[in-house]
């Protein structure tokens, strides 16, 4: 195993982590401000990917497709927030889990009804295709590098918005004391709709970015959703900083685990058994990580209270 290969794998883990952060940021914000656990967040990711694929097919422009993913996912977010989600804020988590589970069913089969059962086509633009040369002789995918940079930029923007802007102050206030912020005369229901739409847009954006190198199909959101939950639980639910650290941890653990565990087992076993055992253990690694973190910090790494 060469150092170059190892660095490339670290970059891959970083890229995966940054995309997970886009998913997890919305989840953790919505929980922090509204106290809502939203299983249908994966559906918004899917909506973004489908909107991007349809737009790219119609216009041929990747930039327009990305904009469409933001707009449509935000729109879908506003729609379900107004129709369904806002009725759930005062309910217990059980009702929230079931209602958003129901939304997954509706979104998934509704999308299949609209777009059919086969995966859709979405590809990155030519100017992001191919590879770039990095220092130390590393050859890396241009698109993945762009994903890392875009993801980091979004993360910085999000931190800035929450720390410095008026809306960010209100969001922080809403996390700390829900009654007080209403008493201050802030239109609380508008704030809630905004936060939900922001989370939805980020999820949809992630869906479009990832859809370009994976497949755009019904059900694509749920595996990512579960990973995003693992991320926010590790990071501490409600904490943006926690979501960022958690996302990178999960991204790196998963990527390096898949890469290193079979190598490790090959030291002690014959190759094909080592590959199988290593792969089995790698598929459980992030859940072990989560169990480990919760053992020592039951409320995650950056618990707010």
């Amino acid at each position: 195993m060469s150092l170059v290969l190892f660095i490339e794998q670290v970059l891959n883990g970083l890229q995966f982590g940054v995309m997970l952060f886009l998913m997890a940021a919305g989840l953790t914000l919505v929980f922090g401000v509204m106290g809502l656990i939203n299983l249908a967040h994966g559906s918004l990711y899917m909506v973004g990917a489908f909107a991007a694929a349809a737009t790219a097919a119609a216009t041929g422009s990747f930039v327009l497709a990305l904009i469409a993913s933001l707009v449509f996912a935000a729109f879908a977010g506003v729609l379900i927030e107004v129709l369904v989600i806002r009725r759930l804020y005062e309910r217990d988590h059980l009702d929230q889990v079931l209602a958003t589970f129901a939304l997954i069913l509706i979104f998934s089969e509704g999308t299949r009804w609209l777009f059919g059962s086969f995966p859709l086509f979405l590809d990155k633009p030519d100017w992001l295709s191919g590879t770039v040369g990095l220092p130390f002789g590393i050859v890396y995918s241009r698109y993945r590098l762009a994903m890392i940079l875009v993801g980091l930029a979004v993360a910085v923007g999000l931190f800035w918005m929450i720390a410095k802007t008026r809306i960010g102050i209100r969001i922080r206030a809403g996390e700390n004391d829900r009654e007080m912020i209403a008493a201050l005369g802030v239109n609380i229901s508008l704030l809630h709709t905004f936060v939900f739409a922001l989370g939805a847009a980020l999820a949809g954006f992630a869906g479009a970015l990832i859809g370009a190198i994976q497949s755009v199909q019904v059900g694509m959101g749920e595996p990512v959703l579960i990973l995003a939950f693992v991320v926010i639980v590790i990071g501490g639910i409600g904490s943006i900083k926690g979501a960022f650290v958690g996302a990178l941890l999960v991204g790196l653990t998963d990527t390096l685990g898949r890469f290193l565990l079979p190598v490790l087992f090959r030291l002690a076993m014959e190759p094909s058994a080592a590959n199988a055992v290593g792969a089995s253990l790698a598929s459980m690694s992030i859940y072990l990580l989560m169990a480990g973190v919760l053992l020592f910090r039951p409320r995650g790494l950056f618990a707010s209270q």
Binding site: L5, N12, F16, S141, S215, M220, A279, S283
Partner: peptide, 21 residues
């Protein structure tokens, strides 16, 4: 090389890097 991936896996950056190497 011979690799078993996770069922349902959608990101193959890690495997492709190993193929390259």
């Amino acid at each position: 090389g011979e690799i078993y991936t996770k069922l349902g896996q959608t990101d193959y950056a890690s495997e492709i890097a190993q193929i390259r190497a």
